[in-house]
Design a binder for these strands. Sequence first.
DNA 1: ACCTAAGTTCCATTTTATGGAACAAATTGG
DNA 2: CCAATTTGTTCCATAAAATGGAACTTAGGT
Lengths: 261, 261
Amino acid sequence: MSILSAAVDVLRCFSSTRHDVTVTDLVSLLGMPKSNASRLLRAMRDEGLLETVGASKRYRPSLLLNQVGQIYRFAASLIDRADAIVGRISDEVGHTGYISVRRGADIIGVTAHPGRHALRVVTAIGDRISAFASSTGRALLARLSDDEVRQLYPDGLVPPSGTAPQNLDELLARLARVRREGYAESHDEAVRGVRAISVAVGDPATGDEVALCISFPAAMASPQERLAIIRSLSEGAAEIAALTRDPLFIPIRPSIAETAP
Amino acid sequence: MSILSAAVDVLRCFSSTRHDVTVTDLVSLLGMPKSNASRLLRAMRDEGLLETVGASKRYRPSLLLNQVGQIYRFAASLIDRADAIVGRISDEVGHTGYISVRRGADIIGVTAHPGRHALRVVTAIGDRISAFASSTGRALLARLSDDEVRQLYPDGLVPPSGTAPQNLDELLARLARVRREGYAESHDEAVRGVRAISVAVGDPATGDEVALCISFPAAMASPQERLAIIRSLSEGAAEIAALTRDPLFIPIRPSIAETAP
DNA sequence: ACCTAAGTTCCATTTTATGGAACAAATTGG
DNA sequence: CCAATTTGTTCCATAAAATGGAACTTAGGT
């Protein structure tokens, strides 16, 4: 086993409840001889991976690790990350996944993952659809204040279907629900028989915001499947939100998160 | 030389302008045989320090590094507190705020708050700049004795601009002024037309020291605004100093503190 | 399909890590 | 203030891993 592996094990010892480690911590956590623990910590400090806390024998991650860790945020763009997550979920559940961005009152699909079921929801990349009349759009609109939403629709709404919000008040009520529940859902809106679930996440550093969406024929998904999709999307988006420190991200209610798979 | 040292060298290759590396990058940057570079990158990926970008042969820092790097902020709780205060001030005044630490004669930005004005000072996190030629640097250097400062610059200064201190005596004179007034200021130093005000504070228990800084276009801030920024920074730093019992903290002169808001 | 650049694998040699135990230092308790 | 105990460091022979040159494979570009 290379010393690299031992060093990584040390890094994995750090957590939100353990901000620093000592030689004995390593002995008990990793079961290594304390001679190794002692030398390893010193070597990692000498190399600049760790630093000692004041004059004590406690070690914590170094500034270097902090800086390299920050690179990760820039290395992958928000869209890349969201796309990777939606791609994975789409693979798992077999339904179509896509990510979209909002431009004003419109939603634009950016990337799509077709899904593999015979009955498949097909969405065109690059098409603009009305934000208020789709789950992706409402997931993104829910990140605005009610006032900002009103400003987007100075002339009210022109509902494309009976299941979409019919007026501004109905839209605001549904956005309130999105903010409460952490996800947006549509049913029979753009296409009859199609259900879609969306979660939005942003990067305050760049101002980008995307919606992650899984879309499927309503007849094909059981209530459990629907819950699983909500959970997957939310978990994936939460990962991104943690990375970008998105202050607007809404985690789903624990009651949903805890439901058995 | 241990493989740990080589791995850290790889991590040091990452910067704000290099988000990923390849085998050949390492060969040219570190002068190592490409057989080593190839194996090292793979080992680091297998251990979870790096991840490959998509299906390409590019490597970037992993989520693990991002997470461990975040620990640094909590481990060095001084940074967290300082960051919160600078963030609040930045929100209030709308200008860019950041906090930095000193490593030898260099200053490294740790966190930043962009500010919301159209004309905005942008500072790169993780970049090293000369301590003596910035307000953050001088705020931190002012915590050292003149002798300690002299030891940091055995070969004198290489001023990057005409407004920075031109020699050691000039630097010491400016540090004396920082100690007298409780804040450091720069004007037209790193960037033309940019003014920055910094205050330093430390935690004697851990030995950590940080500088809190607000940076703004000189043309955009009135004398009153400038005073308000000095006051806010100093009050925030004083809060931290009280918590950590920092014996080196210098409160601003009452004449400034009392000026009407 | 060719050529070139980039990346990987192989192998004997050199260097480094390992872990038990002795030693040293720092805490704790009386 | 000293003894007991816990915690951390150093030493050493052995075992394991890293090294770098060259052969080999793969990917990119024209």
